[in-house]
Computed example of a mutant assay.
Amino acid sequence: MSIKLSVIIPTYNPDADILGQTLQALKVQSLPSSEWELIIIDNNSTPAVKVDLQWHPHATIVKEPNQGLTYARIKGFEEAKGDVVVMVDDDNILAADYLQHALQLLENRPALGAAGGKSLPEFKAEPPVWIKDFYGNLALRDLGNEAVTGKWEGCYPGFAPIGAGMIIRKTALKNYIRHINEGARLISDRQGQSLGSGGDNDMVLNILKDGWEIGYFPQLVLHHIIPANRLEYRYLARLNKDSFKSWIKVLHIHGINPWKKTSRWSVPLRKLKLWFTQRAYVGKANFIKWQGYCGMAEALADL
């Protein structure tokens, strides 16, 4: 039987226990393993990633020495044999019917290029009361129980899929992969100390602008493991700042940035003003939000 679907898991120095949970969820998928392959992309881990994949007839570990999530994903796309690609992070726990739904959705909807669903939290420590304000930063989302689809309308859709669990028709990735390989631009996710995350957005915009539909489908459900260190406010502040910087860059590249370029000399003054307007001194949540706006100020000056 031919491979219909490819699961791609990019990973860099993974937590062995959490990656084990991700793989365990894949072991119990309702879609027969003969119909899908598993590709783990070892993105320069030290030591190299070693996991038992004997349970799967079409599983492999591929190395990608170029550091960065975008490079790892591109390597996975190029290795994939399936017509459908499912992007899985190394801390995602897919529902047992996830792959089956993914395949059915793209087989039944020929205009659909990419889609996502619910990414629900599995916290490993008690989260702060304000954490929901930053669910988007943590790749968490629940848009309800109604499906939503749409095409390119000159802006970024609020229902656009996030990277965690995104399902993609491989043919819809053709131009995106070409842009990256030609060096035309690179919106790099998670590279070095950067926590930027614009690669997902760049991918979605390329798919939309190529004429494909995208969608949100509530039957696609995964749980995202959030360890204690990712709930620490200084981490979230840095995450929010880098995410805003990536977001502005993506919007600018795609010609849909609504904000004007600012002067580099004005950045410190803008940050000081934002300190007060965002009341960053009041509490941790306000401080995190302020850092996001600081990232925006820096990005607009760098355009």
Results as ranks from 00 to 15, higher is better:
residue 5 L to V: 06
residue 10 P to V: 09
residue 13 N to R: 13
residue 26 L to A: 07
residue 27 K to G: 07
residue 34 S to M: 11
residue 38 L to N: 06
residue 39 I to C: 00
residue 40 I to M: 03
residue 41 I to E: 02
residue 44 N to C: 09
residue 48 A to H: 13
residue 54 Q to I: 08
residue 59 A to P: 11
residue 60 T to F: 08
residue 65 P to M: 10
residue 70 T to K: 00
residue 71 Y to Q: 09
residue 75 K to P: 02
residue 78 E to M: 14
residue 82 G to M: 04
residue 90 D to S: 06
residue 92 N to G: 08
residue 96 A to Y: 11
residue 99 L to P: 04
residue 113 G to T: 11
residue 118 K to C: 07
residue 120 L to G: 09
residue 123 F to C: 03
residue 130 W to Y: 15
residue 131 I to G: 00
residue 135 Y to Q: 12
residue 142 D to Y: 11
residue 145 N to G: 10
residue 152 W to H: 05
residue 155 C to D: 14
residue 157 P to S: 12
residue 161 P to V: 07
residue 164 A to T: 12
residue 166 M to R: 05
residue 169 R to N: 09
residue 169 R to Y: 05
residue 171 T to A: 10
residue 173 L to S: 09
residue 175 N to Y: 06
residue 175 N to V: 09
residue 180 I to F: 01
residue 189 D to C: 12
residue 192 G to T: 05
residue 198 G to Q: 04
residue 210 D to A: 11
residue 211 G to L: 03
residue 215 G to K: 08
residue 227 P to K: 00
residue 232 E to P: 00
residue 233 Y to E: 12
residue 234 R to L: 14
residue 239 L to W: 05
residue 243 S to C: 11
residue 255 G to T: 08
residue 256 I to H: 01
residue 258 P to S: 06
residue 258 P to V: 03
residue 259 W to M: 08
residue 267 V to F: 02
residue 268 P to H: 10
residue 271 K to D: 10
residue 285 A to F: 06
residue 288 I to D: 07
residue 293 Y to S: 10
residue 299 A to R: 06
